[in-house]
Computed example of a mutant assay.
Amino acid sequence: MTDPRLLDNIFWHALAGPQARFARGTAVARRFARDYSPIVAFADARSPDFAALAPYCDAGERFYCDGWSGRVPAGWRVDVDATMYKMVWEGPIPDDDAPEAQPLDARHATQALELARLTRPGPFGPKTIELGDYFGLFDDERLVAMAGERVFAGGWREISGVCTQPDQQGRGLARRLMHKLLRRELLRGERPFLHVAGTNTGAVRLYERMGFRIHRESTVRVVALDAAPR
């Protein structure tokens, strides 16, 4: 059984658990190593120890921080203050309707990063596709859609990096890739979930029609270490 409480601080449980090899930090504050994904997490998400994290960050480096809405500590700044939904899968096991999808690896890293920068599906780095299974659909050698798995812990597996080239949208490519991932995860006995921006109501409705439901809404901030404490 998957414990829903883990989702409230899933990035910490991943970075302090099964994905610790991708982490840098301490027993109370961690980040993904450079180029994997610009995300930080804390053992106590509501009262994060930014002082413990600071030695592992460069001045001006920006990170996503989930679940914290408190006072900004000296030496740090908040560039974005928003909300996002955590959504969990409650539908049946879908068919794999993207059998032609190709696994993405280091050969595809540049195209994957360019697609993420163009469509902005969320935090993404040059090595994000190494964090889990990522699949892409191609038109000849051009990557036109992708989706994959970013974090996992306690039986929960995140679907992330879902995006499609603007001139290929409306064809259901991302949905097909998600079905492929959902099927693989469910057959492994895992519980799929995803994050979506609180302002992206269209995506929320789409995911609900697919079979996801909202687990909770949480604060998400983009934070950066200033060059000097304020």
Rank of each mutant, 00 (worst) to 15 (best):
Thr2Leu: 04
Pro4Asn: 10
Arg5Gly: 13
Arg5Ala: 15
Phe11Lys: 07
His13Val: 08
His13Ala: 08
His13Ser: 13
Leu15Val: 01
Ala20His: 10
Ala20Arg: 13
Phe22Glu: 01
Ala23Asn: 04
Gly25His: 12
Ala27Met: 07
Arg34Ala: 13
Ser37Asn: 09
Asp44Ala: 13
Arg46Phe: 08
Pro48Glu: 12
Leu53Lys: 04
Ala54Lys: 03
Tyr56His: 15
Gly60Val: 09
Phe63Ser: 11
Phe63Ile: 10
Cys65Thr: 06
Asp66Phe: 14
Gly67Leu: 08
Trp68Val: 07
Trp68Glu: 07
Gly70Val: 08
Arg71Asp: 14
Val72Asp: 02
Val72Tyr: 01
Pro73Thr: 09
Asp79Gly: 09
Asp79Gln: 05
Asp81Pro: 07
Ala82Val: 01
Tyr85Glu: 09
Lys86Met: 11
Val88Lys: 08
Asp95Lys: 08
Pro99Thr: 06
Pro99Lys: 03
Leu104Phe: 05
Leu104Asp: 06
Asp105Glu: 07
Ala106Asp: 15
Arg107Asp: 12
Arg107Met: 05
Ala109His: 13
Glu114Asn: 12
Glu114Ala: 15
Leu115Ala: 11
Ala116Arg: 11
Arg117Asp: 14
Thr119Met: 14
Thr128Gln: 04
Thr128Ser: 14
Leu131Ala: 00
Tyr134Gln: 00
Phe138Ala: 03
Glu141Ala: 13
Leu143Ile: 06
Leu143Ala: 04
Val144Arg: 03
Ala145Asn: 07
Met146Val: 06
Gly148Asp: 04
Phe152Arg: 15
Phe152Pro: 00
Gly154Trp: 04
Gly161Glu: 12
Val162Met: 13
Gln165Leu: 15
Pro166Ala: 10
Pro166Thr: 08
Arg171Val: 02
Ala174Thr: 08
Ala174Trp: 06
Arg175Ser: 14
Arg188Gln: 15
Gly189Ile: 05
Arg191Cys: 10
Pro192Gly: 03
Leu194Glu: 03
Ala197Tyr: 04
Gly198Gln: 02
Gly198Asn: 01
Gly198Ile: 02
Asn200Arg: 00
Ala203Trp: 01
Arg205Lys: 14
Leu206Tyr: 02
Glu208His: 06
Gly211Ser: 05
Arg213Asp: 04
Arg216Trp: 03
Thr219Ser: 13
Thr219Trp: 04
Arg221Asp: 08
Val222Tyr: 05
Asp226Asn: 14
Pro229Asn: 05
Arg230Ser: 10
